[in-house]
Nucleic acid binder design. Structure first.
Lengths: 216, 216
DNA sequence: GTTAATTATGCAGAGACTGCACGCTTTGCG
DNA sequence: CGCAAAGCGTGCAGTCTCTGCATAATTAAC
């Protein structure tokens, strides 16, 4: 299974697009630098704009909110073809497919360079306010995937749908639980092991936890 | 296992406390009514205050933020005794204890009457902005519980701590996945079955999903 | 009844964010 | 090249959430 990772090379972009990318990155850098110095709360949009030499209005045109510049632009939504593939072409064995889809949505985030990404993650995780927002984004993705699973289930005409009406959501939560340690370790040590291995480890760990003896 | 469910009966409260509760409820009602009419975005704090006949400053003294009045006050944190009990007195079998603790934190929310609670839930779920915040609260609870588990593990001196450094978080995610369908069904139909049964059902469903054949 | 703690309120102001209008740059096309 | 259309950057005015501070009123405690 292969999902494409991104679009047009930057070199063959129009002048307009290139300028846009440049100011976007300038603003991001200014924001990140200032936040590392003063903390998230200690930075105002005005400060960022002064440092990046753009007007506040322009800032909001680019990022929509103060948090936006720190969280990065929203991860790509699954394409219609992928949705179709996922809903119609697969057997009803859901969990690992979902993990796969999830992984794609998380990894193809954006075209920011790795160093900036790392700084950003550090900032987010050390700022409760931002961490909460990051989580909210995860929740959005979660909701979206839940809807997708529901559609697949409807398409396949699974029998017990009325007995376990919220099975899709649980599957998503589980997929998330599986992804979490794998992604975590992978971010810390990209060459440590293949993602497949990490996921397999994670899965066996979860099996062990679930099968733990249940002391009355 | 038994956790106390609430505090002092309202009748034997000082005048000051009773007044405070009264205005709190007045503001809540005003907010809820206005939001049902105009939607969350369509309501300003000023409108709520006018309707409840308090000053905006008082509103923020009570709820701290506009969302606060719609989400309800934060669920009670676990008491120090409970934390101690959880960290030190229990064997290392974690999952079901955690579910129990989780259930307590969710159920003892507040002393608002059920009808208001229902309206509030409806509003939250039909307002993306509020739904996100609700999720954020869950995330906070999750973080807190993760830290608790970590402490328990340190106290017990579990061996494989460095092999599975983020097992605590995964356990919390799993507990959450277990709680989710149970809580959902329980909110819809409180007398349908005991919470224990619901949780057992949920657990078996999760086992089934995890043990699903993994096609290639 | 006097003193101390709580509470309600007004006020001033910071800071995030939006709609609108205007001028400049890039683009596409003949 | 020249010209029109589209897109972009900007200033401005204004709304709204939220905070610190000072002050007056209320309740509690002795």
């Amino acid at each position: 299974m292969f999902f494409p990772s991104a679009g047009v090379p930057e070199s063959e972009l129009g002048l307009r697009e290139r300028k846009r990318l440049a100011t976007e990155r300038t603003i991001e850098r200014a924001a990140l630098d200032l936040a590392q110095e003063h903390g998230y709360e200690g930075v105002t949009v005005e400060m960022i704009c002064e440092s990046a030499m753009v007007s506040p209005r322009t800032f909001f045109n680019y990022f929509g909110s103060k948090e936006g510049v720190f969280l990065g632009n929203t991860p790509p939504r699954p394409t219609p073809e992928m949705i179709d593939w996922f809903v119609n072409e697969r057997p009803s064995t859901t969990l690992l497919d979902l993990v796969e889809l999830f992984r794609w949505m998380m990894s193809t985030r954006n075209r920011t360079d790795p160093e900036t990404m790392r700084e950003r993650r550090a900032l987010i995780h050390s700022t409760p306010d931002l961490a909460v927002r990051e989580f909210a984004r995860m929740a959005e993705a979660e909701t979206e995937l839940t809807a997708l699973l529901q559609r697949r289930r409807d398409a396949a005409g699974i029998e017990g749908s009325d007995v376990f009406p919220d099975e899709p959501r649980v599957v998503v939560l589980l997929a998330f639980a599986i992804m979490h340690p794998a992604m975590h370790r992978w971010l810390e040590n990209p060459d440590d092991a293949s993602q497949e291995t990490l996921i397999a480890d994670s899965l066996s760990m979860i099996r062990r936890i679930i099968d733990e003896p249940t002391h009355s």
